[in-house]
Design a binder for these strands. Structure first.
Lengths: 192, 192, 192, 192
DNA sequence: GGGTAAACGAGACGGTACGTCCAGTCTTTCA
DNA sequence: TGAAAGACTGGACGTACCGTCTCGTTTACCC
């Protein structure tokens, strides 16, 4: 599986990073989070393990990077004049993205890793999630324009949890209608 | 109707099961999900690995059993005349249970395991969660007495996801007020 | 694989011994010395391991017993008026016996066992071999009527070694002619 | 028991092989073939099991290697002008070698292993024995200069068997006189 | 334009854990 | 009371990865 690659000498070789990320992606797609090991990635990429560890010190780093690259391709928050629909579209796209691409497996692996590795937990909480939560908060803010930051944050967590429980139970195949109703609930106007 | 002859031979030794579950509990408490290995449990329990595998064929089985036994001790759904408060109490107790006992680590380990082991995923989804979701549905049903089963189920998932995201981010330390507000949101009356 | 068997309570049940020996024989035949374990025998016989250990305290005992029972069937030293031919016949029969029956595997297992178990070594040397060596000595004595006991014993060992090295190398398929020539050599008249 | 050893990186570290072979030798000497396990060798050598399996895929490989290294030290066929005496000397030396060194245990372990492992049998028959049988054939050839190859081969097997039966019965303590007489018999001139 | 430094493939290495098999012993049940 | 059978501890099996380390090779940059 090792592709012939001309060495670049003393500068970082971008082909190598590419090969490694490709390999990681392929393994996640073919064998899921279970088959994902640094060993397997190195093997498939035709790279040495130290090379991987040099650029991605932990498994979490690699998983996050794979996820990011996939993300670029598809999920982008829209900004129409119906913010409610924007959030629905975004959510539906995200679930789609998780179910049809490598990303779902990468994310599942990342969350699993975080349960046993403090470093991965930190990376997840402090690096990976914040920008994503921001996006959600921003969308929710457009819907509930008068709500406090705490209120928004709480609803963002509800949204996050709803998506996670579906992913982590391998139940991300859900009718758009149902997702819409869930969105409706977590955006319901706060009790006076 | 011929009476089946009861099998002869030694009976399962309850002290052994106890020792194994105790060891598992202690390891989860002391070292968290990361340090939890069948090997370590066997070691600490002074038991042979085959003995463990005889009664708990997979890691998930053992984790679930540890969780169950802990559960008996503490979290029980109340049934007062304020169903809204019942749900809050239950949730607060559960988070408390997760944070102060072994249970949180066991559950985190179980969810992580399910991400890479199909058997664990099946066990989680088909054996572990159903009774718990039932409890939640029942409580939600008392609050939203006119809602359809699908509606209740959806809100149960929202509740589940909210709890999971907190647990899986190691953020189960939350003000009771906030939990209350989250509960309020997922029980908000469906838009007429 | 367990055959239904009425239990007999506090008297030894001959059916059990039979079942165990049968199982041992079958396993040796089907899987060779490699697959022969007390566990497997107990399993196949539908017996408990302690039952086996009660009557055959070591693996060697069981192997020897299996060998003995097979032996009754076939190899008997003849006693014609050509003692040289008697020995040849006996040897050829023995090799045949080893190659076509369970016995070869049992014997190989016994010798192997003796290399790591002092008890098995003792049993082999002091119980199993003596009667067999006697038979050989007796036959050799008829051929070399004037040789001393030491002389006979030495040649018996040569005969024994010749057969063993063939068995232990899985090379017991040898032309009768060659066996005959080997016999001729070890019975050659001692140098004057 | 692990001795500090500088790592050598991507080239095989000879100190490691040494440590492993030393450990294997020591265990054979101290505990005999019975106590010889890959686990114990790894433990004593301060090496990981995979390291052992990398270089010696089977137990037989390791036993053979231990045997070879010992051999270098002592048993070498002489070539005087009395070929008969050469063979005697060689045999006596070999038995001595088996009885006073680690080698006897290694060889016994190897033969035992071959009875239950086809791979070990192959290694024994196709790799280990041939050079040794050649030596013997060569010596016998010098004694019986007119004998055919088949004749020599047969007598080589007699010699081999004689040595084996002594080793495998733990009876390698034999008077040199007796060994001499056995040699005399298997080198007796073939009947006209 | 020759020497140095970094990146890289390769893979050895000590470890930990896996899940399984077997040896022997202990305990319980039943005739 | 003693035979039978299942449960048990414990040790070894052979394998998969972990993360670290050291090699030797190949450029790219700097003096």
């Amino acid at each position: 599986m090792s592709k012939a690659r001309p060495p670049t000498g003393s500068r970082r070789n971008p082909r190598v990073s590419e090969a490694i990320l490709d390999a990681a992606r392929e393994i996640l797609t073919e064998r899921g989070a279970a088959g994902f090991s640094m060993e397997a990635v190195a093997q498939r990429a035709g790279a040495g393990k130290p090379t991987i560890y040099r650029w991605w010190p932990t498994r979490a780093d690699l998983l996050m990077d794979v996820y990011e690259r996939e993300k670029l391709v598809s999920v982008v928050p829209a900004q129409s004049d119906d913010p409610n629909d924007d959030l629905l579209r975004y959510t539906v796209n995200l679930w789609q993205f998780w179910s049809t691409h490598t990303a779902g497996q990468a994310f599942r692996g990342l969350i699993a890793e975080a349960q046993s590795s403090p470093a991965a937990m930190t990376a997840l909480r402090d690096r990976f999630l914040p920008p994503r939560l921001s996006t959600i908060r921003e969308m929710l803010g457009r819907i509930l324009s008068q709500a406090s930051a705490e209120e928004i944050d709480l609803r963002a967590r509800l949204w996050l949890g709803f998506s996670w429980q579906a992913l982590l139970q391998d139940q991300i195949l859900m009718e758009e209608v149902d997702i819409g109703r869930a969105i409706a609930i977590i955006t319901c106007p706060s009790g006076a």
